[in-house]
Design a protein around this nucleic acid. Structure first.
Length: 570
DNA sequence: GCCGTTTTCGGCCCGACTGTTTTCAGTCG
C-alpha cells in the first residue's frame, strides 16, 4: 500500500489492524462468532478482507497490489536505513525489486548520484545488508530473560546505577522478543555505558554514546542500554515498555485532554507545564488512569479498563500456594522424587503435585510409568510423610489417546489425587477429531487439568501453532465440566497462549499456572506461566493453585462426584 | 480505514537521530 502511494492514514490503519490480529485469539473463531470488529482497529472494511482471506486464502485488494509489484520487493525494506521513500525511489529509478538487485547495484556503483544517497549512506547500506541477514529472527522469552538478568547482575556489581530493569517486550512477557532493552538511572552515565560495552558476552559494540549503548552477542541478539536521569524514570520506563500500540492509544487519549505524552514528561498544552514522574504509577495517574500492569499493555482495551476502574487485579507469582505439573526420575525428569519435593518446600509452597508421565509410545520408545510403577511411586510419596514440611499430591500426566480416552483405566486414575490429561501423540488429526478428543478428555470425571492444551511450541525456528480444534467448544466444555486448563510455563510452550486464555476466561474456565519442570531449576519456569496469565487478564481467583489445598481437593472431588451421576444430568 | 465521555466528519503519537537538501526529509523505536 505504501509503494502504491496509498494515503498514510489508510495504511497505518492496516498496520494497526495487523497488530491487533497478532495479539488476538485465532481469527477463525472470531469470524465464526461475528466478532472481528470487536478487535480495536478492525472495522467493516478490514473485517470483510479478513473474512475473504479466511475463506479463499486471499482478497481482491491484495491480489491487485501483488500484480503491481514484484513479490520480493518487500525484502528491500528489511535493510536497516531503507524506509518506504528510499525503497520506492530505488524501485522507480533503478528497477531494484529485490535484495539481490540492491546488492548488485551497490557492487557495480549504479547508485552513484542517486538522490539523498551519499557516500556515507551507501556504506551504511552495505553494512545494513550484512546486519539484516542475521537479524530477522526473534528470541524466545526463555532465552532472552536469563541473558537480561545476567547483564543486570553484572552491571549491579560493577557500576553505580539504580532502577536497573529490562523494559520493552521482555517486560511485557512477550513469548518471543526481537531485542533486549535495559534501562537504568545513574549520575555517572559514561561509566555505566563503558562497563556495558565491556560485558563479557558482547561480541560487537554497535554504539557507545553518552546515554545509550548497543551491543551484539555472538548469537546476533542485540541489547540496548539507556541511562537516564532519575527524575524522568517513570516517563522513560513507561515509554520504553510500550507496546507501540499501547503508547499510541495512550497518547491519542491524552491529546483529547490537551496533554502531550512522551518520554520527556507530560506536557500540558494549555498551561505549558511539564509533569515529570519518577514512577509509572504517577504517569498513569496524571492521565486519570489506574496503573496498568506491563503485560496488559497491548492496546487491547486496557486503557478503557484503567479509566473505568475495571482492570483486573493481575495474578502475581506470590499468589501461588503450590503447583501441579512437574516430573521426577520416575519418568523423564532429571532429579529424584525427594529432590523435587524438597525444592518445592524451599520455594515456600504449601503443596505440589508430582505428575510423572503415564506410559505412552514415542519414536524413541515408550516413556512414562505403567500402572504398577505409578503405584510404587505413590507408596514412595506416601512414605515421605511430612519429612519436607509440604503436602505432595500423587498425580499423573496421563496421555490422551486419539479417541479421547486415557491410557490409564478408571480404577488406576481414581488412585491418583489429581490427574492432568495431555495430548502428546497423533497431533495431525483433523480439527473435528481433535475437538472431540479434547472435549472427551474434559468430560472424563478423573481429569482435573488439561496440560499444555494447544500443543503449540515457541522457538526461533519452529512456528508450530499447535493442533487445531474448536477452541470455543473446548473452553465451554472445560467450564461446564469443572476442568482446569493449564498455562504451562515451559518457555518452549507457554501454552495456553495468552490471547486464548483471555478468551477462555470469558467462558468461566478455571486455570492453573505450572512449571512443567523436568529439573529443580526449571521449577522457576512457573514465573513464565504467571507472565502469560497476566497477559490474559487473569486474577488470583481464576487460578486453581492460588487456592488452599482444601479448595484444590474440593475442586477435584466435585468433578469426580459427577462420575456417579447419570449422563446428561447437567 | 478507523473512531468518538465535545465530534458520524475530520482528525489521526511522539521524539531522537542521521545524513545531507544550508533548513529538513527520512528512518527508527
Amino acid at each position: 500500500m505504501e509503494f502504491a502511494g496509498e494515503d498514510y492514514f489508510r495504511f497505518m490503519a492496516y498496520e494497526r489492524a495487523a497488530d491487533a490480529v497478532h495479539n488476538a485469539p485465532p481469527l477463525a473463531d472470531l469470524a465464526l462468532a461475528g466478532e472481528l470488529t470487536s478487535l480495536p482497529g478492525i472495522g467493516k472494511s478490514i473485517a470483510e478482507k479478513i473474512q475473504s482471506i479466511l475463506e479463499t486464502g486471499t482478497c481482491g485488494y491484495l491480489e491487485e497490489l501483488r500484480a503491481q509489484y514484484p513479490p520480493r520487493l518487500m525484502e528491500v525494506l528489511t535493510v536497516p536505513g531503507i524506509g518506504i521513500k528510499t525503497a520506492r525511489m530505488l524501485f522507480e529509478q533503478f528497477e531494484i525489486g529485490s535484495l539481490a538487485d540492491l546488492e548488485a547495484a551497490l557492487e557495480d556503483g549504479t547508485l552513484a548520484g542517486a538522490p539523498r544517497l551519499g557516500k556515507k549512506s551507501i556504506e551504511n547500506l552495505r553494512r545494513g545488508i550484512l546486519a539484516s541477514k542475521g537479524r530477522s529472527r526473534r528470541w524466545p522469552l526463555g532465552v532472552a530473560r536469563p541473558i537480561a538478568e545476567a547483564l543486570i547482575e553484572y552491571l549491579r556489581a560493577n557500576v553505580r546505577a539504580d532502577n536497573l530493569i529490562a523494559a520493552g517486550s521482555l517486560r511485557r512477557a512477550e513469548p518471543t522478543v526481537g531485542d533486549i532493552d535495559v534501562i537504568c538511572t545513574s549520575g555517572e552515565p559514561d561509566a555505566v555505558i563503558k562497563a556495558f560495552a565491556s560485558f563479557s558476552r558482547a561480541q560487537a559494540v554497535l554504539a557507545e554514546g553518552s546515554t545509550k549503548g548497543s551491543i551484539w552477542l555472538e548469537t546476533g541478539l542485540q541489547i540496548d542500554l539507556r541511562v537516564l536521569p532519575a527524575h524522568l524514570f517513570g516517563n522513560l520506563l513507561q515509554h520504553f515498555t510500550g507496546s507501540r500500540e499501547h503508547n499510541i492509544q495512550l497518547r491519542e487519549m491524552a491529546v483529547r485532554k490537551n496533554l502531550r505524552v512522551s518520554e520527556n514528561g507530560i506536557l500540558n498544552l494549555e498551561t505549558g507545564d511539564n509533569i515529570t514522574c519518577t514512577t509509572e504509577e504517577e504517569v498513569y495517574s496524571a492521565l486519570g488512569l489506574a496503573f496498568i500492569p506491563p503485560e496488559l499493555r497491548l492496546g487491547l482495551g486496557e486503557i478503557d479498563a484503567a479509566r473505568n476502574g475495571t482492570l483486573p487485579r493481575s495474578i502475581e507469582l506470590a499468589d501461588l500456594r503450590g503447583e501441579f505439573h512437574m516430573h521426577s526420575r520416575y519418568s523423564d525428569g532429571a532429579n529424584t522424587l525427594e529432590e523435587m519435593v524438597e525444592a518445592c518446600a524451599v520455594r515456600g509452597y504449601a503443596y505440589h503435585a508430582i505428575s510423572d508421565h503415564s506410559q505412552y509410545p514415542t519414536r524413541g520408545g515408550d516413556v512414562g510409568l505403567t500402572p504398577e510403577a505409578a503405584r510404587r511411586q505413590r507408596d514412595h510419596v506416601r512414605g515421605l510423610g511430612n519429612r519436607f514440611g509440604i503436602r505432595t499430591l500423587c498425580a499423573s500426566e496421563v496421555d490422551v489417546r486419539p479417541d479421547g480416552s486415557l491410557v490409564f483405566d478408571e480404577r488406576t486414575l481414581a488412585e491418583f489425587d489429581l490427574v492432568i490429561a495431555s495430548v502428546h501423540t497423533g497431533t495431525n488429526a483433523s480439527r473435528d477429531e481433535m475437538t472431540r478428543r479434547m472435549i472427551a478428555a474434559c468430560e472424563n470425571p478423573y481429569v482435573s487439568i488439561i496440560g499444555h492444551p494447544t500443543g503449540r511450541y515457541v522457538d526461533e525456528t519452529s512456528d508450530f501453532a499447535g493442533y487445531e480444534f474448536d477452541y470455543d467448544a473446548v473452553f465451554a466444555a472445560a467450564a461446564r465440566t469443572g476442568t482446569a486448563l493449564e498455562i504451562d510455563g515451559h518457555p518452549a510452550r507457554l501454552d495456553l497462549p495468552s490471547a486464548l486464555a483471555r478468551r477462555a476466561k470469558g467462558f468461566g474456565v478455571t486455570f492453573t499456572c505450572d512449571s512443567d519442570a523436568h529439573s529443580i531449576p526449571a521449577l522457576g519456569n512457573v514465573s513464565y506461566a504467571v507472565g502469560q496469565a497476566r497477559r490474559a487478564w487473569l486474577e488470583p481467583a481464576d487460578v486453581l493453585n492460588t487456592r488452599s489445598l482444601e479448595a484444590v481437593l474440593a475442586f477435584v472431588a466435585q468433578k469426580r462426584a459427577s462420575a456417579a451421576l447419570p449422563a446428561n444430568k447437567h
